[in-house]
Lab assay of single mutants.
Amino acid sequence: SKDTIRINGIDIDVKDLHEEWKRLVEEALKRGDEELAIELLERALKE
């Protein structure tokens, strides 16, 4: 798994994120759902 995830052309540092969150965000991006990916990231970062 990578340490960054690219959303809207912005590389976001996710190395401190739990693997499960990372996977969910990557799944959302694979489906092209950037809005969901951002929402998941925000939730993950609050934890």
Rank of each mutant, 00 (worst) to 15 (best):
I7A: 02
E34G: 09
R43Q: 13
E20S: 10
L41Y: 06
D13N: 14
L17T: 01
A37D: 00
E27D: 12
K46R: 14
E26D: 08
K30A: 15
G9Q: 05
E35H: 12
E20M: 10
R31L: 10
V25E: 00
D16V: 08
A37I: 05
E34Y: 15
D16N: 14
V14T: 06
A44H: 06
T4W: 04
E39P: 00
A44I: 06
H18C: 14
K46M: 09
H18Y: 06
I5V: 13
L17K: 01
E47S: 08
T4D: 04
E42H: 08
W21S: 14
E27K: 02
N8C: 09
A28S: 02
E39H: 14
E42T: 07
E34D: 11
A44C: 05
E34F: 13
H18F: 06
A28R: 00
D16H: 14
W21N: 14
E19C: 10
K15N: 09
E35A: 15
K22A: 09
K2C: 07
K22P: 07
A28T: 02
V25N: 00
E27I: 05
E47R: 03
E34I: 11
I12W: 15
L40V: 05
D11I: 07
L29F: 04
L45S: 10
L41R: 01
D16G: 15
L36A: 12
L36R: 09
K30D: 09
W21Q: 14
L40S: 01
K22N: 05
A28P: 00
R43D: 04
L17D: 01
E26P: 00
E26K: 11
E47A: 07
K15V: 06
R23A: 11
D3N: 08
V14A: 07
L45W: 06
W21H: 15
A28N: 00
E47Q: 10
R31W: 11
E34W: 14
I12C: 07
A28Q: 01
I10W: 05
N8W: 01
G32C: 05
D16C: 15
E47M: 05
T4C: 11
L29W: 05
E27L: 06
H18S: 15
R43T: 07
T4G: 05
D13Q: 09
L36C: 08
G9H: 05
R23D: 13
E47Y: 00
A37V: 07
A44W: 11
K46N: 10
R43E: 07
R6M: 09
A37W: 02
E34Q: 14
L29M: 08
H18V: 06
L36I: 05
L36D: 04
E19I: 05
E27S: 04
V14L: 07
L24A: 13
I5D: 02
E26M: 14
L29N: 01
R43M: 12
E20G: 10
K30P: 00
K30H: 12
D16Q: 11
K15R: 13
A28C: 05
V14M: 12
L45K: 13
E35G: 14
D33I: 03
E42S: 06
I38Q: 14
V14W: 12
A44T: 01
D33G: 04
T4M: 11
H18E: 14
R43C: 09
W21E: 14
L41I: 14
I38G: 10
E34M: 14
T4I: 14
E26A: 09
L24H: 03
D13L: 10
E27T: 03
E19D: 13
R6P: 03
V14D: 02
L45M: 11
K30I: 13
L17M: 07
I5F: 02
L40T: 04
E42G: 08
G32E: 03
L41V: 09
G32W: 03
D13S: 12
E20L: 06
K2T: 12
G9M: 06
R43N: 06
R6A: 05
L29T: 01
I38F: 12
E42K: 10
E42D: 11
L40W: 04
L24S: 03
H18I: 10
E42C: 14
